[in-house]
Design a protein around this nucleic acid. Structure first.
Lengths: 201, 201
DNA sequence: AATACTTTTGACCACATGGTTAAAACATAT
DNA sequence: ATATGTTTTAACCATGTGGTCAAAAGTATT
């Protein structure tokens, strides 16, 4: 692959990412992706044989950015409470930079569940490490005993929800865009507080 | 509209609901909906002029089942902690009966945000009532002062997440289907506990 | 039984979509 | 300059899609 080739390929991936995330797999049009990338539709098929393959490439990129960061954080050497604080901070920041990724994932998860599992497996997230840390710290009286599968789901749920359900939340609580931005910002401290209260002995 | 007509219309709505929820708007095929309903494709257009109109009808039904129950609960005359317990119980039960609705809503929200807002507005959810109740009870020392827009989002997020992200959660924590069912069941007490700890003075 | 109305169907249409192809444009090496 | 390989394009193609139509089947009314 020449330099020009790599540049084009990159343009395509960026364009495809935008369109797939905005429209979903079925809603995305190869023509629109080509337009976004400033190229011919035939060239899409030259670089990525089919829509499915192109989607795979996009999804793979998104997914493989997602999990390693998470894994790294889970395996860091920090006390649980600090780890949670760090996780929430980094996770929310990542979400603010890519607010549509979660909805994209959920959509893919629902319409094409298989394509996802391999990335999860490859990610090698190991919740047993966290459970062990929880149990250790609980035994030492630092936190109360909780189940990792609840704690982790709760934290992630609270982080993600305001992004995937933004129109609802924003509307029900009658916020304009600036106010919603501020709301998102305020959630970091709020979630942390919420979680810490629930695991404090 | 004759009786036969109403029956057919109902069959169509049920079939359309299934297909739209499973495949999303773009992924759904009028032919497949017709097949599911056991009728001719032309008959779909006889009852619902277009795909968009049919979707509107389905979505309207789903949405108008969702909000009134919520509204009623929010306006019930109960102490906040009881109200929360009731809400979580009823909400999780509704989710177990319709596990794919949230992903459907999120998907619609992302690809067709406008179509949703009118239902939210029509629902007339008023979070100020809850905020008032929180403030009252906080003043009386029953709970600590929290913001409704955080508390409510947190509760709903924790309820919904295991349904929209089921494949991920189930896989990461290595559960089979029965175990996941049990996990979902265990969340009722877990979420309530989590929330109560966070609002207790 | 005849009429008028509604429901249902099969055949059809225009068009958008993902995908192909053969040739042109470009780049690289000899 | 020429030959070789790569990148890009315009023009097509086959198929699937939402949607239409005229006629048939069914139902109720007189």
């Amino acid at each position: 692959m020449t330099l020009a080739g790599e540049i084009t390929e990159n343009h395509i991936l960026i364009a495809a990412r935008e369109v797939f995330i905005a429209k979903g797999y079925e809603g995305a049009r190869m023509q629109e992706i080509a337009d976004h990338a400033g190229i011919n539709k035939a060239l899409l098929h030259y670089y990525f044989r089919s829509k499915e393959k192109l989607f795979e490439a996009v999804f793979s990129e998104v997914a493989s950015n997602l999990f390693p960061a998470m894994k790294q954080m889970l395996e860091a050497e920090l006390e649980l409470k600090e780890k949670i604080a760090l996780f929430i901070r980094i996770y929310l920041k990542a979400l603010e930079e890519n607010p549509f990724i979660p909805a994209f994932i959920i959509n893919t998860l629902n319409t094409n569940p298989d394509s996802f599992l391999k990335y999860i497996k490859k990610a090698g997230l190991n919740p047993k490490l966290i459970q062990k840390q929880i149990d250790d710290e609980a035994a030492r009286g630092i936190i109360r005993a909780v189940k990792a599968e609840h704690l982790m789901v709760n934290i992630i749920a609270m982080c993600i929800f305001p992004f995937v359900a933004r129109p609802i939340v924003q509307n029900v609580f009658d916020m304009n865009n600036d106010e919603y931005q501020a709301y998102l910002g305020s959630r970091q401290a709020e979630i942390l507080d919420f979680v810490l209260k629930s695991i404090t002995v």
